[in-house]
């Protein structure tokens, strides 16, 4: 699954069959390299959906058990949201100080949320571990 694919997708509560809101981005923990939450817009109860509360990601909708799954950001998610956490549009840097281009998309595993690749203007970088995302850019360590 790519960030650009899931963006805008509707979030549906399976229990009530009602659209809760729409996906408006992902929250990635740059140290662990996993998606920890989805940002949701249009939901009355909040703007954050924890990855653990997602029951399924289908071609047309992101499924949750109940509308209450969407709430306010807490713990690590809130901490990440307080930083310059956005990936898209940032420079991609290696830990050895080489610029790999601007990040245009992020690919992640639909099951465990692990970031599997970063897409830049120049191509796909799948052989790297995420180590940081800050004001200057996204930092990765490439496999030797």
């Amino acid at each position: 699954m790519r960030l650009t694919e899931i963006d805008g997708r509707r979030v549906m509560a399976a229990g009530t069959a009602v659209t809760v809101g729409r996906v408006a981005g992902v929250v990635i923990d740059p140290r662990q390299g996993i998606v920890v939450a989805l940002r949701v817009k249009g939901a009355p109860s909040g703007d954050t959906l924890r990855w653990a509360d997602v029951s399924g990601i289908g071609a047309d909708a992101v499924m949750v058990a109940s509308p209450d799954a969407v709430g306010e950001a807490v713990d690590r998610t809130a901490e990440i949201l307080g930083t310059k956490h956005e990936f898209v549009g940032k420079r991609l840097l290696t830990d050895t100080g080489s610029d790999l281009g601007l990040v245009i998309d992020v690919a992640f595993d639909e099951q465990d949320g692990a970031v599997t690749a970063l897409h830049t203007e120049d191509g796909r970088i799948g052989d790297a571990d995420l180590i940081g995302c800050g004001s200057y850019g996204v930092v990765v360590r490439r496999h030797a």
């Binding site: 740059p30 310059k84 940032k90 840097l93 830990d95 100080g97 180590i131 940081g132 995302c133 800050g134 004001s135 200057y136 850019g137 996204v138 930092v139």
Partner: peptide, 11 residues
Amino acid sequence: RPVVTLAGDEI
């Protein structure tokens, strides 16, 4: 040359 932390922040 920019000075950047491994967390991606520019100093």
